Amino acid sequence: MEEKIRRTALDIIGDVPWGTHFCQFYQTKEDMIDILVPYFKAGLEDNEFCMWITSEPLNVEDAERALKKKVKDLDDYIKTGRIEILDYRQWYTRSGRFDSDQVLRSWVEKEQQALEKGFDGLRLTGNTFWLEKKDWKDFTDYEASVNGVIGKHRMLAVCTYHLDKCTASEIVDVLSNHQFAVIKRKGKWKIIESAEYKNMMEQLQVSETNYHAIFDSAKDAIFVHDIENGNILSVNQKACEMFGYARKVLEKLTVGDISLAAQPCNQEHAGGWIKKAAKEGPQLFEWICKHKTGRNFWA
């Protein structure tokens, strides 16, 4: 099962879920290298298909040269199709002009192709230095569309904007169309969160707190399993009490470890019930469990 949380390899940001769409305000190509090289190095290491769309002041050759300093096997990654580093004219304006619908469809197609080839998802970046004022409205509409749909896809996207090319109102446009931005102040990278993203994260935090409170106060033992392999991902307090294990220990065990381990109460049959529940909904059945002490009991 693909991990929903992905490494950015950026200390200021940390790990993020699929569907994260943020921007970087830069002033020099070294600023872009600071963020994008570790970002793509992590993606290559974590089985993600990577796309780097370049523009001045950091062109294709610059990007490859900078990435190669940290990724020794970059040439092999390029040859085997694990990363594409393209000029903006090969992507954003390949039809001779910027077509927002075409570009958005192309990202989705790239994601689908990546998944079909066995990648976990798509990690991308695009530099906007090429943008002219006449294209700004279309591009901001495109960014808004990306921000609205990216949460449904296994994509990570960072858009880079040259700070000196943006007016104050354009900076506001950029911030409103991304979940957050990174910008360098006094030599250190800082995060600026959009009001909408900040509000969403606060609501998610409240929701997660409420979920854990309900989860742990339930009178029934609750196990959360990986659908693919049946591994135990999480348990509540009642499950710990029922089986006699500390939570951290119980979450490392298999269903077979806490079962009779004989048909029909073994790991194989448990996997069948888990997949059936995922496909059809709640299932009602009896099971012979094994306590930490070795005592068997029905549940």
Rank of each mutant, 00 (worst) to 15 (best):
K292A: 03
E2K: 10
C289L: 15
H212E: 11
M51D: 07
C166E: 15
I232Y: 06
V235S: 01
E84G: 05
G230Q: 01
H162Y: 13
K188R: 14
Y26E: 03
V60L: 09
G43I: 01
G187C: 08
I192W: 01
V158A: 07
D257Q: 09
I191Y: 09
A181D: 11
L10W: 01
K292I: 03
R154N: 13
E208Y: 12
N199T: 14
P264G: 00
W136H: 09
S100E: 03
E251R: 05
G281K: 08
T8N: 01
H225M: 10
I13V: 07
I33W: 02
W91D: 00
R295G: 09
I85Q: 04
R89Y: 09
N127R: 07
D141E: 14
F25I: 07
D46V: 09
D31P: 02
G151R: 11
G272H: 11
R94E: 12
H212V: 07
A218G: 07
D34K: 00
V60W: 02
I192C: 00
Y88P: 00
F25P: 04
C265M: 09
G148A: 12
L124R: 08
A42R: 07
Q263Y: 15
I85D: 00
C265N: 14
H291G: 05
R89M: 11
K70L: 06
I53D: 03
L44T: 00
Q237E: 15
H153P: 04
G81I: 10
W18C: 07
A277P: 03
D15N: 13
V108E: 06
P38T: 04
K29I: 01
S169N: 12
D11L: 14
S145C: 13
I83N: 02
L44C: 06
G151P: 05
W107F: 15
M242R: 13
S145W: 10
N147E: 01
K152C: 06
D226V: 10
E228W: 07
E84V: 13
E84A: 14
G187L: 02
A299S: 13
I171R: 13
D141L: 15
Q102K: 14
Q237S: 15
V103K: 02
V149T: 07
M242C: 10
K68N: 10
L124H: 08
P57K: 00
G271Y: 11
C289Y: 14
E286D: 12
H225N: 14
D164Q: 14
C166N: 15
D135S: 12
Y211F: 09
K152M: 10
F139R: 02
F215V: 02
M1F: 11
M1P: 11
K290I: 04
I183K: 04
S145A: 15
K41W: 12
N296S: 10
K152N: 08
L253P: 05
E170V: 06
V174E: 05
C159D: 10
E193D: 08
W298Q: 14
S55P: 00
N127G: 03
C23K: 02
V172K: 15
R295K: 15
T209D: 13
R247F: 01
K117R: 15
A181T: 11
T209Q: 12
V108I: 10
G43V: 02
L260D: 08
L58P: 04
L58G: 04
I183M: 09
K198D: 10
I13L: 03
Q113E: 15
S207W: 00
G256I: 08
E202A: 13
D87H: 08
